[in-house]
Simulated assay, not measured.
Amino acid sequence: MKYKAIKKQEDRYYINEYQFFYVDKEEMKARMSEIQFPAIVMDTEFFNRSHESYDYDEKAFPRLYDEEQKDLVYVLQYSFAKNFKEIHNRQNSKAIKSMTIKRSFKDSEYSFEAQYDSTVKSFINMCINKNIKTLVFAGKENDARILKSWINKNKALLNNKRSDLFVINHKTKEYDVNAFDIYNVLSQNMSFSNFDKQGSQFYEPKNLKPGKKGENTLALPSLKKFFDYMQTIYPNNQFEEEEDIYNLCVSALRFFSYKESNFKDYLKWNKDVKRAKTHCYNDVLKLLYLIDFLYVFMFYDDSENKYIKK
């Protein structure tokens, strides 16, 4: 990333000649204070019925999911955080861990269900034992729903234990998950001019919500759009990926469910699963970079902000 690249003019922060953004620091700080620490910053990749391709054959690829478990996670990347300052000071690329379902070619002992159950219980126990209080996502709807189903299927893991992360709803007798979505901060507390670094339109304004501040500004509701916009600050191409994550999940469905496979298909699907793992890792790293970026603008005076040119 590139430091001391942003220039402040009045209440605008200029990335270059054309691109600038506004920050609502106080409201951003109020939203981000909802994150209780210690926290886990995380992302998952999963497959479900929507990943059944046009030539899907249930006899060749028996369904692993059902109405009770509609989304099956095969990659989980996560990073522990004691506080914002830790994220700010450390090398985040080395602070990410993973849990992954695995399969060898012609493995007679392979059981997706057994591995999945073990992964779910390991993650829940880890959260309980480390007293995790918040799970931080970039878009929490799907992931939070999956985590909620995990804990409610494994309520016994909380017997005689206290958790600030998994909180019982006394009306439904179900556990809720204390999850935080960084997109609420990104879309509500930052507004971006609609230009790319060459001065052309960055995005069709009809397809994005307007920013909360400034004329003709946009809200950026995703990690991809934020990092596409911030190419001056994050100029490397480490996040560029050849395959769409949807297609990788289609391969993952086949990889984990096939009854029989030739070695060529096995290698292709296995490679796609590894690519999905990289994609998931990159999304967690982006999320950590974004949290650090927001932290600096929330808590540092502009004269001490590492991104601002003095």
Rank of each mutant, 00 (worst) to 15 (best):
K121P: 03
I168C: 11
K121V: 06
E67T: 07
S163R: 03
K8C: 01
A138K: 00
V75T: 15
K161C: 05
N270E: 14
D244S: 04
S251E: 14
F299W: 13
K309P: 10
A95V: 06
S118Y: 11
K106A: 00
T278V: 11
A138R: 01
N184M: 04
V177N: 04
K148Q: 10
Y56F: 08
S222C: 02
Y234G: 08
Y246E: 07
K29F: 06
K7P: 04
N270V: 02
N189T: 09
E58L: 03
S50N: 09
M230P: 12
V73H: 12
N216D: 15
F123S: 00
N282H: 12
N169R: 02
F195T: 10
P221H: 03
R103T: 00
K148Y: 01
P235I: 10
K225H: 13
N16S: 14
I96M: 09
Y116C: 01
H279K: 11
D117M: 00
V75P: 04
R12F: 02
F195N: 10
L223C: 06
V296C: 13
Y110I: 12
P235R: 12
N89D: 15
H170P: 11
D265W: 09
K197D: 11
V167H: 09
D143H: 04
K7N: 07
K161W: 03
K94M: 15
P221Y: 04
F293Q: 06
K155V: 09
M28D: 09
D143C: 03
N282Y: 00
Y13P: 01
Q201F: 05
I308R: 05
S251A: 11
K206S: 14
K212H: 14
K274S: 13
E243V: 06
I6H: 02
L135A: 11
Y110S: 11
Q231G: 15
Y183M: 12
K106F: 06
D265Q: 13
F37M: 08
S79M: 03
R162F: 08
D71N: 12
K271Y: 07
S93L: 09
A179N: 05
F227H: 09
S118I: 04
K274P: 01
F21V: 14
V167C: 13
D71K: 03
K2W: 01
K286T: 05
F21P: 14
N131K: 14
N282G: 01
K133E: 15
A60H: 15
N131A: 10
I87S: 10
S261V: 04
D228Q: 15
N129G: 02
S53C: 08
N159M: 13
F123W: 07
S98G: 09
H51V: 00
P205L: 01
L208W: 08
C249E: 08
V284F: 00
N216T: 10
E113H: 15
D43P: 02
C280G: 03
L158Q: 06
L186D: 07
K130S: 11
P205E: 02
